[in-house]
Design a binder for these strands. Structure first.
Lengths: 230, 230
DNA sequence: CGTAGCCTTGAAGGTGATCAATGTTTGTGG
DNA sequence: CCACAAACATTGATCACCTTCAAGGCTACG
């Protein structure tokens, strides 16, 4: 079986494509290719013409864009099952609004842009489900915004807990993606030093542990406690 | 002509419904009603079962949700032509994720929830256009996030400029909605005092003027200048 | 073996928060 | 129409959190 064929079987387990037959998937993903990305490999870059969108098969990607001052800001951590760049496929000459970089070894199913107009757009049910994904993104961005008045300690706790919840299946205590302190800082919009100071405190208190960029939340209940009234 | 009928003519000028005949609109908006809201009137409240969604005919609404500490955070300022609550209509028992409050006298076309499943969802092209709206929301939330590392002065300038750009048509210097300093603070996630200090500076320098909660940007070029390198 | 990127720690500084007091506008009911 | 309450606006003083700057250690990789 070709790699793409087996990928199609793989995505049929994702919520988005449940109930789709292999034939239907073959149509939707005609001409697709699989990108095998190593850690830190860039999938696409902000500003580049968008000639493909697609689905994360495994691993994770950080989605970032440059801020006014030039340094990068991470807007989202995308994990297996997430769709990337679908939201701009509607435009006549789409350009990636963000840069996608692999976090850990990852696999991505690249679907040619034409498929969107030819097949995806015609499938009201699929568009509808994608809308559901977009809605959830908006709601979680709102939640994040509501946390802006909280202390950095609370925002950091909320961030790690949210990442832990992304975990598909088993409830291990390890975050499903490798993360540097710098990346966490870029995600929260603060400096590395601030993140480090809080996380080393937590390490000393046994709340978290880091092993080769893999972060584990040893005491999630305690982290949740931090989110309660200051 | 009934008020609803004239509203249907009104919305046919919005980008979302261009090319729709009155008959089609009558089908999509069957059973709709018009809410005439006065300043500060609440259209729906967070947590309340969502039995309608709809379109802002005129005026504006602030969309807010309570933060951890209890005070409200404004997640979006919605203006004429915006769709509210469409993104949660897909759920089986939707509940409003935010509170919508009128800013200035406003009119809203309330469409019953059933219409979404019966008619809107079936219209692939419409769902597709709504997806376009959602995409733009996500992109602008990303832009906002990229500004989180900037100083409050810059974020405030960006906020006012973005609101000025929402203006449909004429390029007056007055923001299209009445805003208190407190609301701006709730939108930016900072305290009223900080907003006031910056805005009184700008008032003294002649950059802005306030008249009965109507803010005017007298020198937009200067505001844009503030967004350049610190 | 040298460089580049990440991690860590400390000291100093600034931005925005907090607290407090007062003035102003808006809305409500007698 | 006035009295009063409630919400908003303003200002100053003080404080805390987070940033900035600086220096050094660690690991990965050519």
């Amino acid at each position: 079986m070709s790699p793409v064929e087996s990928a199609l079987q793989e995505i049929s387990t994702f919520a988005l494509f449940r109930n789709y037959s292999q034939d239907q998937l073959r149509l939707l993903c005609g001409g697709a290719a699989i990108s095998i990305c190593s850690h830190r490999q860039v999938l696409f870059t902000v500003g580049q013409p968008a000639d493909f969108f697609g689905i994360i098969l495994s691993g994770a990607f950080k989605l970032s864009k440059p801020s006014l001052e030039g340094q990068d800001v991470i807007v989202h951590f995308a994990t297996a099952g997430d769709i990337l760049a679908a939201l701009i496929m509607a435009q006549p000459h789409p350009v990636y609004p963000i840069t996608a970089t692999a976090l850990g070894p990852s696999r991505f199913l690249k679907v040619p842009r034409e498929n969107f107009k030819l097949h995806w757009k015609k499938d009201a049910d699929l568009i509808f489900k994608i809308q559901g994904l977009l809605s959830r993104r908006i709601l979680s961005l709102h939640d994040e915004k509501a946390l802006m008045t909280a202390s950095l300690k609370q925002r950091l706790a909320a961030c790690l807990l949210a990442l832990l919840e992304k975990q598909t299946g088993s409830k291990s205590l390890e975050l499903p993606l490798p993360l540097t302190r710098k990346e966490i800082a870029e995600y929260l919009g603060v400096t590395v030093e601030s993140v480090i100071r809080i996380m080393s405190d937590w390490s000393k208190q046994g709340l978290i542990a880091t092993n080769d960029q893999q972060i584990s939340l040893l005491r999630p209940e305690m982290m949740i406690e931090l989110l309660k009234v200051p």
